[in-house]
């Protein structure tokens, strides 16, 4: 336990001093750090659901997209202040989780994956078609940066620290939830729902709360995305983006909360390096993804455990 605390503290300190120790800070703080934190929070919403309910959701970008579009449309088209639009967007994204969850939670496994993927692709096609609202394929551009207490988050470092703060709070919140009786009941549902039902638990509300919480996380990530990228278009919720997110979660380790950020850092750095050399980085991440799935399905976070298990098996066999 103390070892884990030391590790968290080290990671946090590294994250705080990162802008001062990295070479070429203007590039790496934004394209490496801030981007990884945004992607990490999005991935966290997916990992939380997978870890605690055993459900792999591709619907997270739907919630991100709903929240992101609401902020973008209200601030650019209707001049609404962020103080109003951001809470409203997060609320709307979270509440849309109730409708999607009501349907999707009746299914599991690969059905759940398909249904949530269809939800995200549905938003993509809506965003493309509904030009009067979303400006279609071009999307909504030049979204202004927020200014909080006189601090302009258009600058690289303030935005990085804002995102770091959000990520730390949300990560801690997930960890806290897992320790409560609610979190423990969730694991029970994941492992054996029928037994939980026969023990007198009403499992649907439990699953629903977990799902809506994850859509809350995804909505926050959607707002972060709008502030980081400063535009939003149908491609922000398209097929390639959905798979990109899945790559982050799986490569990092889908059954670990920290895996979301490990995967996000890896992919952000990978993309930042490779985009100078080749336009095919999406293909490269796809190949990486397939290799990880075939050889190390527990992802980077799980490799240590996998090696340990294999070694134990080997010594067990030779003894």
């Amino acid at each position: 336990m103390t070892r884990k605390r030391i590790m968290y503290a080290t990671v946090l300190i590294l994250a705080i001093i990162f802008p001062f120790i990295t070479p070429d800070p203007d590039f790496w703080v934004s394209s490496g750090g801030t981007r990884a934190l945004w992607l990490g929070v999005t991935a966290l919403s997916m990992s939380f659901l997978n870890r605690n309910l055993g459900l792999m959701s591709l619907g997270q970008l739907f919630f991100s997209g709903v929240a992101g579009y609401i902020v973008a449309i209200s601030s650019v088209t209707h001049n609404v202040k962020f103080g109003t639009s951001v809470p409203l967007a997060i609320l709307a994204g979270t509440l849309s989780g109730v409708i999607i969850g009501w349907i999707a939670l009746k299914t599991k496994g690969v059905y759940f994956l398909m249904l949530t993927l269809a939800v995200t692709l549905g938003l993509y096609s809506f965003a493309n078609q509904a030009q009067e609202i979303t400006r279609g394929h071009t999307g909504i551009n030049s979204i202004p940066s927020p200014i909080i207490f006189g601090m302009d988050f258009a600058y690289v470092k303030p935005l990085y620290y804002l995102f770091l703060g959000i990520a730390v709070v949300l990560f801690a919140l997930c960890k806290f939830l897992e320790k409560t009786s609610f979190g423990i009941a969730l694991k029970g549902v994941r492992d054996n729902e029928d037994r939980m039902i026969s023990m007198g638990y009403r499992t649907m509300p439990l699953k629903m709360i977990a799902f809506v919480f994850s859509s809350f996380l995804a909505s926050i990530a959607g707002v972060m995305g709008v502030f980081y990228v400063t535009n939003i278009s149908p491609d922000s919720v398209g097929l390639v983006r959905s798979i990109d997110l899945l790559v982050i979660v799986v490569v990092g380790g889908a059954t670990y909360l920290g895996g979301a950020f490990v995967g996000a850092i890896l992919i952000a750095v990978f993309e930042a390096i490779i985009q100078d050399f080749t336009q095919y980085y999406v293909g490269a991440t796809g190949i990486l993804f397939i290799v990880v799935l075939m050889l190390a399905p527990q992802g980077l976070m799980g490799i240590a455990a996998q090696v340990r298990a294999r070694r134990a098996k080997k010594t067990g066999a030779s003894a």
Partner: peptide, 16 residues
């Protein structure tokens, strides 16, 4: 699920 995820990877590579 693993198979479904691998096919998503295939679609990403193909798209590119």
């Amino acid at each position: 699920l693993r198979v479904a995820l691998i096919t998503l990877g295939v679609s990403l590579v193909l798209a590119q």
